[in-house]
Simulated assay, not measured.
Amino acid sequence: MSDCCNRNIMERDICPCDGIDLLDDSQTAPEIQTHPITRRQVLKYMGGFLLTGFIAACGQAGGPQAQKSPVPTSIVSSQPTAPSREGLTKLDLAFCSQVLCILPFEVARQQGYFADEGYDVNLIYMKGGALAINALISKSVDFVGTPMDLIVRSVDQGQPVIMVASTSRLPFFALVVSPGKSSEITKISDLQGKRVGVNNLGTTDDLLLKALLAKNNLDPNSTDSVALGPNLYDALLRGEVDAGMVQEPALTLLSQKGARVLVNFMDRQQTNEVLGGDYQFMGLNTRPDVLDSKPDVVEKLARALVKANQWILNHTGSEIVKAAPQELAPGDDIQIFAKALDKYKESLYPSDGVIEEHAVRRVVETQKISGLLKNENIDISTLYTNKYVEG
């Protein structure tokens, strides 16, 4: 792993494991290696992954205490847990390795929905959403699961990619105040001048923070955003930052210790109240040339993921978490995830895979607020299509 992954990244410099807005200009990706190491090794590499609750928006960047990776490449493949069927067409599908992002894809594989459509799908766990998008752009793979933020950034940089099905319509984050600051910081405007922890600058959690500040009539840069990588939980607990963007199980664990929740984006009602509606997050993505050459494949994969989300909505959290790699939720954490899924699954996972224009537009507007877009008049219609989920 590059040395830049082991430092606190305070500028938008290019790093091979950086997050959403850090696609390099070459838009290249390493050649896919399907089994260089086991999934257990890459999940072990993630280390503090669960305590932060995310590798922010699936774009991972190491903080000051980030572990060095034993992984020699940027891509690893999952080991299959569902029985394979003879006569299926093998297909690689890359996505960022994050537990709530993983679920629809793993459910589709383990419940046989991909196989029902004729495909033996190899889910490739990648160290960050930017790497997945780069693999898609370089044609190392034809399909990836990443957030809409990366689609917007890629298209803005002249690289056509497109989302064809929504697997999550909300971000997996909550903005919480450090337990020691909960009596002092009671609303968004109190964050002015404070240190707020995010995974990395320019990732979804950082963009959402800036949007919240702007909506509360504050300069989007009025907080001191601190890139902490996978160490956010501990930093909040120790009071090293005043607030931060976390996910489960960090949200539950910090709340139990007195942290104040300012906004929970996993709750659809709260998201609607603070942002005005949904914020399109995860989905199945591909390239326009794939839509032209393999429309039947796109439709079949989208249909399998829609079925997976419907399965998630119809089952309890304790059943759903069995689809997640056990390495991601050891010990009591699995029960925290199960309870969180029971609470948030209706908000997070759409039953029809439909991508809403207003939710995509909200992502674009958030990036405009953050000053990331080169093209202020980006064409929303180029970012997504519902053709393959609406039949």
Rank of each mutant, 00 (worst) to 15 (best):
N6G: 13
D13C: 13
I20W: 11
I20K: 05
D21N: 14
D24W: 14
A29C: 08
T34Y: 11
H35G: 06
I37R: 15
T38I: 15
Q41P: 10
V42E: 09
L43A: 02
L43D: 09
K44P: 00
G47R: 10
G53P: 00
G53W: 04
I55F: 09
A57V: 09
A57F: 15
P64F: 05
I75Y: 09
S78L: 09
P83R: 12
S84D: 07
S84P: 03
L88N: 03
K90N: 00
D92N: 13
D92V: 04
S97A: 15
Q98R: 02
Q98G: 01
Q98V: 12
L103W: 05
L103R: 12
L103V: 07
F105I: 06
E106M: 05
A108T: 04
R109I: 06
F114W: 01
D120N: 04
N122V: 03
N122K: 05
L123A: 06
K127N: 01
K127V: 09
G129A: 12
I137Q: 00
S138T: 13
S140Q: 09
F143I: 03
G145N: 13
G145V: 08
L150S: 11
I151H: 10
P160V: 06
I162T: 11
S168Q: 15
R169K: 11
L170P: 03
S178D: 10
P179Y: 15
K181M: 15
K181N: 03
T186V: 09
L191N: 02
L201R: 10
L207G: 01
L208V: 07
L209F: 09
L212G: 03
P220S: 00
P220Y: 01
D224Q: 13
L228W: 00
P230T: 08
D234T: 13
A235L: 06
L236Y: 05
R238L: 14
E240G: 00
D242F: 04
G244N: 03
V246M: 10
V246P: 01
P249E: 13
L254K: 13
S255Q: 12
F265Y: 11
R268V: 12
Q269F: 13
N272I: 05
G276P: 06
Q280Y: 04
F281E: 08
L284E: 02
N285D: 11
R287V: 06
V290F: 13
K294H: 11
P295I: 06
V298N: 10
L305I: 08
N309I: 12
I312M: 04
L313D: 06
A323Y: 11
P325N: 12
A329W: 14
D333S: 11
D333M: 13
Q335D: 02
F337P: 01
L348T: 01
S351K: 10
V354F: 11
H358W: 14
R361A: 01
R362T: 14
V363D: 00
V363H: 00
V364E: 04
K368P: 13
K368R: 15
I369N: 00
G371L: 12
Y388Q: 05
